[in-house]
Write a protein that binds this DNA or RNA. Structure first.
Lengths: 133, 133
DNA sequence: GATAAGGGTTCTAGTTACTGGAAGGTCAAG
DNA sequence: CTTGACCTTCCAGTAACTAGAACCCTTATC
């Protein structure tokens, strides 16, 4: 299977797959013509990567998770620790974004949005005290 | 006022202030010794920038907002449009993150997290269908 | 006057995770 | 034999800083 088919199967752009090879996440063998050849193993890895990334894991974490995924003697605690840490980061981001959204939606609602210069949004930005932790 | 005092007043790191000058967001004059001098105007701009950034606006948007902020003949509609677009992006990000959180928290809960290799998280990543839009 | 601490300055390079584009080799069809 | 769709590599750019090196300025102290 060539790279564009692997892309179709995994949902990852071909560029991204090449990039993943470059940083050592996958290592597809090459055909005599130099083309990358993707078999079951590499496809599984790529799919795993695509899904882990979709869950928001950093590439660095994906590398670790992939190693654990392939390590039959892993401890599930190792996986769980990474996942929980990531989960906490997600929660924190959500909280940040919700604070932003609340502040901003109030400002937007207060703004007439016409051709006059008076603007509660700009005034709000001037005076908003810390939104972020 | 020198840069470190400006940093204290605005909450921005000095490095960031220099960066903002480099990209033309502020233009503090220089003292005879070459030091940047921050007066009222630049301080206001920096504070405005810090708060707009804290609300999650991209630097590009901050540039526009700052121009509108300084333009006494602006139309509030212009500001509102930018803010609403940004608000939509925030909402979308929140939705994405919540989907991730939900999936991930289920997986984490299902994982024993002990020294055995059996791991619902890895299994989940293997089989999770699209989390992201 | 020498020196040391604590400012300030510039410049380069690194970060994250790709993405776009150019230049050029390969392959199957007509 | 040419055309078009693949594939390859390599270089540069993105966002918004951040780290660090090398060096200048100021002030205080000895």
């Amino acid at each position: 299977m060539n790279i564009s088919d692997a892309a179709k199967h995994t949902g990852l752009p071909a560029k991204t797959i090449r990039y993943y090879e470059e940083i050592g996440l996958v290592t597809p063998p090459r055909d005599t013509n130099g083309y990358r050849v993707f078999g079951e193993t590499e496809l599984h890895k790529l799919t795993f990567l695509a899904r882990a990334r979709a869950l928001g894991f950093a590439v660095k974490d994906c590398r670790t998770l992939l190693a654990l995924y392939e390590d039959q003697s892993r401890a599930s605690a190792d996986v769980k620790r990474i996942a929980r840490t990531h989960l906490n980061e997600i929660e924190a981001k959500i909280a940040d974004l919700i604070a932003m959204r609340d502040t901003l939606s109030h400002l937007v609602q207060a703004c007439a949005g016409d051709d006059r210069p008076d603007c509660p949004i700009l005034k709000g930005i001037e005076t908003t005290s810390s939104v972020k932790a």
